[in-house]
Design a protein around this nucleic acid. Structure first.
Lengths: 210, 210
DNA sequence: CTAACCTTGTGAATTTTATAACAAGTTAAA
DNA sequence: TTTAACTTGTTATAAAATTCACAAGGTTAG
């Protein structure tokens, strides 16, 4: 198959496949069929084959998929087989937690600069990084090769943060602030709010009780 | 309309609507049409009306929706117009960050107990809570009225944590660990991994560049 | 009271996504 | 070498979600 439009749901599932495949590696499993992988991911095996078909042919008929190879192929397909430098705006509770969360590096996302407009925070050091005023974003972005922006401001500051990022020529944004933002259409934005998942579980539990 | 099966995507959007509506309240806007709300949420207005129709009739024809009323209606529909008591298992980096993240209470989710099997951590106090061995989960869950479990262990401990939660009669699970878990089918599980969103942005940026 | 105008709620049409089914390729054993 | 047993990649089918289009209900101005 290859290329054409790729459903966002497919991207989400590819992330799941990677997760499960990495755990298989840890268990020493080297080859897996789409059927087995499907069970481990709680999806349909056709789904997996179709998701992968968007990007190429990664399996061997009669055999299955070589786990390590497949991980590499999926990572290449997603464009995460390389380093992405990020800037974080909003060093509050959540921003601080993310800066301390060292999984970012492990997954190839390096937070190279932290910004906040609070004068009390500017100049302070955190995780080996100086907190800087967002007016300097543009300079630092090009200097440090920053491509992605992470917004962790309060909701009423999210748009201003987005404007700074766009102005600095950032290519994509992950917005943890509980507010929608407007940016030019060529800049992808993803919204993260893990309370969505709490709501969903609460809803399902409520439904089950009624 | 009312009831029948409700798409998971609808639940996700309802969470978005609440977010946008709450920001409208802050701006003093009291009434809004599905068309205006749709623009603010970047969705189709029919989508909004249909999503809401699953749960009832909340608008006034010729007028629109009363913002505050609509928020209340959606919260009731989702079952989040009340307090949910939670237990957290795995007091590592991420678990600690969540315990410190006071938005949980603001949104009606109270983490009433924290568990970890590391002897070095057991007995220590954190955010006014004593870290306890997971073997005591069952007792504490019933005692404290805990209904939801939050897993923040390393991936290889996630299943064991899930087993403890199921054994304790928990009704739903939010799993932050990067591993799939198996639980009885009547217990809803939601997986949270904000790297999914980073992957998605990275992918879209990569796609745009090619 | 009437007419012109809005906006919701919803059935029908469309588009998208997921599943099933199978031909084609691979391995292993006889 | 042939056959039986697997498993992928892909086409065809089915299901689901989204968008359209409009009747029904409601509001405002004259």
């Amino acid at each position: 198959m290859k290329s054409e439009h790729i459903p966002k749901a497919t991207i989400g599932r590819l992330a799941v496949y990677i997760q499960v495949l990495e755990n298989l590696i840890r268990d020493g499993i080297e080859v897996i069929s789409s059927e087995k992988l499907a069970q481990a991911c709680s999806v349909n095996s056709s789904q997996i084959r179709k998701d992968l078909a968007y990007f190429g042919e990664f399996g061997v008929r009669g055999v299955g998929y070589y786990v390590q190879e497949l991980i590499t192929s999926i990572r290449e397909s997603l464009g995460i087989n390389r380093v992405w430098n990020c800037a974080l705006i909003g060093v509050g509770n959540l921003g601080m937690a993310l800066l301390r969360h060292h999984d970012f590096e492990r997954r190839g996302f390096f937070i190279k600069a932290a910004f906040d407009c609070d004068p009390d925070k500017i100049g302070k050091e955190l995780e080996g990084m100086e907190i800087v005023c967002p007016t300097h974003l543009k300079d630092q972005a090009s200097e440090l090769g920053i491509e992605l922006g992470i917004i962790t401001t309060p909701p009423d500051r999210a748009q201003r943060a987005a404007n700074h990022l766009v102005d600095a020529g950032i290519k994509g944004i992950v917005n943890f602030a509980p507010a929608r933002i407007n940016v030019p259409p060529h800049i992808p934005v993803e919204y993260v709010d893990f309370f969505d998942h709490l709501y969903s579980v609460a809803f399902q539990v409520t439904l089950g009780n009624s």
